[in-house]
Amino acid sequence: MSDESLAERIETWMVGQMPIIQMHGGTSVVREADPETGEVVVELGGGCAGCGVSNVTAENIRRDLITDFEAVTDVTVRVPSSGDQGASTVEGGRGGELRHETDASNHF
Rank of each mutant, 00 (worst) to 15 (best):
M23V: 09
H24Y: 14
H24C: 12
H24F: 12
G25A: 11
G25D: 14
G25W: 13
G25V: 12
G26V: 08
G26T: 12
G26M: 08
G26I: 03
G26W: 11
T27L: 10
T27K: 02
T27S: 14
S28E: 06
S28N: 14
S28H: 15
V29A: 14
V29W: 12
V30F: 06
V30C: 09
V30P: 04
R31S: 04
R31N: 08
E32P: 01
E32T: 11
A33E: 08
D34A: 05
D34G: 12
D34F: 05
D34P: 12
P35V: 13
P35C: 11
P35I: 11
P35S: 11
P35L: 12
E36L: 12
T37V: 08
T37I: 05
T37S: 15
T37M: 06
T37P: 04
G38K: 06
G38L: 04
G38T: 10
E39I: 03
E39W: 04
V40N: 01
V40C: 05
V40W: 09
V41A: 00
V41S: 00
V41R: 03
V41P: 00
V41C: 01
V42A: 07
V42D: 01
V42L: 13
V42H: 01
E43M: 03
E43G: 09
E43Y: 11
L44Y: 01
L44T: 01
L44I: 02
G46P: 08
G46Q: 07
G46W: 08
G46D: 13
G46I: 06
G47V: 07
C48I: 04
C48P: 12
C48N: 10
A49Q: 13
G50I: 06
G50N: 12
G50P: 10
C51F: 06
G52N: 07
G52M: 10
G52S: 11
G52C: 09
V53Y: 15
V53D: 13
V53S: 14
V53E: 14
S54A: 15
V56K: 04
V56C: 03
T57C: 10
T57D: 07
A58I: 09
A58P: 07
A58F: 07
N60F: 09
I61C: 06
R62F: 06
R62V: 03
R62N: 09
R63L: 00
D64A: 11
D64H: 07
D64Y: 04
D64T: 13
L65W: 07
L65G: 08
I66W: 00
I66D: 00
I66Q: 05
I66R: 09
F69H: 07
F69T: 04
F69M: 03
F69S: 04
F69D: 04
E70C: 00
E70N: 10
E70G: 05
E70F: 01
E70L: 00
A71I: 02
A71Q: 14
V72W: 04
V72G: 01
V72D: 00
V72Q: 03
V72L: 03
T73F: 08
D74P: 07
D74W: 05
V75I: 02
V75N: 09
V75R: 08
T76V: 08
T76R: 05
V77L: 03
V77F: 02
V77S: 00
V77T: 05
V79A: 04
V79I: 13
V79E: 04
P80H: 08
S81Y: 12
G83A: 15
D84A: 14
Q85C: 14
Q85H: 14
G86C: 12
A87S: 13
A87F: 05
S88T: 11
T89R: 13
T89F: 02
V90E: 10
V90T: 14
V90I: 12
